[in-house]
Design a protein around this nucleic acid. Structure first.
Lengths: 151, 151
DNA sequence: CATAATTGTCAAGCAACTTGACGATAATCT
DNA sequence: AGATTATCGTCAAGTTGCTTGACAATTATG
């Protein structure tokens, strides 16, 4: 006697975005594990992508990654332990320590880039080249205006 | 002298997706707080959207939300404490407890739906109606094929 | 009716953060 | 110059959102 299955759940863009993003992350992590870089997890990937070719100081890295310096430090402890990056004291400022990729770290980044391209290609195959371009453009515009709609 | 082949970071779709998704979540949470539903946080929102109008058992809810029943239980403890849902023992099965919205819970869902629509409208204004439709379609296709590209 | 499965629960632990406090160093200001 | 102020990295502890493991109560199955 209880009909009314009623659509109480709105299908919203945020939910769609979340699911696709989760799918992307899951695939990326799976692929990195499969290629022997299992220590290159999700959180570390998000951090490590801000380390440039020439290295970066921890605090600057934290700012770029949008995390506290303490959070960054904890991830870096692990990354140093796994041999992906190294901490070098800045000769110009004894307080500062520069984070730089090791050879292993560069390898991981190269593989990560390959994986990203692979996933992107599969996306493109699924929805078509035109839709893929549209998707990218739309996301870029939204990102560019992220701060405008802060409120 | 730098013989580094140096893989500089490529701009990938996953990063774009992540940033837009984060922006969406941040805005949603901010708006819910502003409208007096600060207890309706991000994790709870993801869970609560699977509670139907007629309620649902905890284990079934966990399956829908893709979490363990223990994780669900912990969120429900909070939601019960905040008066958003209630646990009712199923008359047909004394083991089972049905999770149902209270009046406050329904209010929260209504407000949440409004907020979602608002954000969606702002997105549409930014990128245009056509691009918004394309975005939604693209995301839906990718979601639909999520399992195909499991590997 | 004995055994197995399911439901919810208690407990402990882990990952990815956070805030707070602090010593070492560098920059700025009298 | 010296004294204050700011910055950098670090140690410690707490929070959130999950996880795995164990278990009693209840229902389903042989």
């Amino acid at each position: 006697m209880k009909p009314t299955p009623a659509p109480e759940l709105i299908d919203h863009i945020g939910w769609d975005l979340w699911r696709v993003t989760e799918g992307w992350k899951r695939r990326f992590t799976t692929q990195m594990v499969a290629r022997g870089f299992g220590w290159f997890g999700e959180a570390r990937g998000n951090l490590v992508q801000h380390i440039g070719r020439n290295g970066i100081a921890q605090t600057a890295l934290a700012a770029k990654a949008g995390m506290t310096k303490q959070a960054v430090q904890q991830h870096l402890d692990d990354l140093v332990r796994d041999g992906a990056v190294e901490r070098v004291t800045d000769p110009d400022d004894a307080r500062r320590k520069i984070i730089r990729f090791t050879a292993l770290g560069f390898d991981a980044m190269t593989v990560a880039n390959d994986v990203k391209r692979d996933i992107e290609d599969q996306f493109r195959q699924l929805i078509g080249a035109a839709a893929m371009d549209g998707l990218t453009d739309a996301l870029r515009v939204l990102i560019a205006h992220q701060d405008d709609l802060q409120k």
